[in-house]
Design a protein around this nucleic acid. Structure first.
Length: 110
DNA sequence: ATCTTGACAGACG
DNA sequence: TCGTCTGCCAAGA
């Protein structure tokens, strides 16, 4: 979470802090990191995180609540099932009641 | 050192 | 309302 590791390391830190059964958006994380318009960087970081088991990237979706990164989860609906197991209802890669399950790092974290 | 890519987001036409 | 384009910043080739 220190900047020593670079930008995406911080993204990892936030991802790990996402409570189980909650989801957040790339923009929210980017904003929390201070670069609200660098949401792409978050996705980029996740791209690297996909190789890191410690990062629950399945809890990170786009602002629409759509699991855009599902393709990176083996090309199956594994990502969707993971969320459902955690208590997040997902329908066809779309998080149901997204706002309800949305977890804002800036708001939840001190 | 330069160019391309990237799991987004917001603005514009 | 929907489709398209740009903006943003970092990492890999």
């Amino acid at each position: 979470m220190n900047k020593d590791q670079g930008f995406f390391e911080r993204v990892y830190g936030v991802c790990r802090l996402i409570p189980k059964g909650r989801v957040t958006s790339y923009g929210a994380i980017a904003k929390y990191l201070g670069s609200a318009r660098s949401s792409r960087m978050v996705g980029w970081a996740m791209n690297s995180s996909k190789s890191m088991e410690d990062i629950p990237a399945h809890r990170v979706v786009n602002r629409n609540g759509v699991l855009t990164g599902k393709s990176h989860f083996g090309g199956t609906d594994a990502m969707q099932q993971l969320l459902e197991e955690e208590g997040v209802p997902v329908k066809n890669l779309q998080v149901q009641d997204f706002e309800k399950f949305f977890w804002d790092p800036m708001k939840e974290l001190p």
